[in-house]
Design a protein around this nucleic acid. Structure first.
Length: 249
DNA sequence: CCCTGATTCGC
DNA sequence: GCGAATCAGG
């Protein structure tokens, strides 16, 4: 696997977000921790609370790199790597699985609001957003779900990829605009668990609207989660992705 | 031991 | 440019 722009971007994002090289490597898949670190350095993004660098005397530290004295003069690269672990990265999970995917970490407080600063405040989680629905010529199949939600046909939804992609959650960064967003810890059986945004991002949160009784989502998102099935042959191809894939806001 | 990032250097 | 091997601190 090579470093595509997408993978590089994700690496950089996660690196700056405080994820460890191991986490990034696992998230990206098919790369080792070393590869991630190496790439990060080549990208110029280095340095970050590093355990090995806690020792800091301003500039006195003589970099170990200065080992012209070949203490081990012949570290000939011996390709001896079993490379045992071939763990395939997690696949896209249903929204309800988001909680499971992010119980992992809650430690470092790296308040980096710089990247998030330029973001446009997400639209209110409630209030029916007037999504431009391309009234298609195809017969629209709509049925009414148990809670009164309208089942959507395949390809009828706005973002083709609503459920959160596999990502690691970075500690929520407290910010004014996050005050009213429903965080993971605020989830309950009473509120909609539909993820808004992507885990790990500054403004990631959950819908939080009252649920459609008996469902994990509100009525609106039930319509997204439970879709009507088009008859065979009448299937529409999925709507084209904007660009770059799963990143719709 | 485990983990981490940093660095080197053959490819 | 890539990444395994290695180093070094926590």
């Amino acid at each position: 696997m090579s470093w595509t722009p997408e993978r590089t971007a994700k690496l950089q994002e996660m690196w700056e977000g405080g994820s460890t090289a191991s986490q990034i490597a696992e998230a990206l898949g098919e790369v080792t921790r070393n590869a991630v670190i190496g790439k990060a350095h080549r990208l110029g993004l280095k340095s970050r609370p590093s355990p090995v660098k806690a020792n800091d005397k301003k500039a006195a530290k003589k970099p170990v790199a200065a080992k012209p004295a070949p203490k081990k003069a012949a570290p000939k690269h011996a390709p001896k790597r079993p490379a045992a672990d071939t763990s395939v990265a997690a696949q896209s999970a249903p929204p309800s699985d988001v909680s499971a995917a992010q119980t992992g970490e809650a430690g470092s407080d790296t308040s980096s609001a710089k990247s998030a600063a330029a973001r446009v405040p997400a639209s209110g989680s409630n209030s029916p957003q007037p999504m431009p629905n391309p009234s298609n010529a195809l017969p629209k199949i709509v049925s009414v779900g148990p809670g009164g939600f309208l089942r959507q046909g395949p390809g009828d939804q706005q973002p083709p990829i609503p459920p959160a992609p596999p990502r690691r959650l970075v500690p929520a960064k407290p910010s004014p605009e996050m005050a009213e967003k429903t965080s993971l810890l605020e989830l309950s059986d009473k509120v909609c668990r539909w993820p808004m945004g992507h885990p790990g991002e500054a403004d990631f949160h959950f819908c939080g609207v009252n649920v459609n009784p008996g469902f994990p989502y509100c009525v609106e998102h039930c319509g997204r989660a439970y879709q009507a099935q088009l008859p065979r042959g009448a299937r529409r191809p999925p709507p084209p992705l904007p660009f770059g894939g799963p990143r719709v806001r």
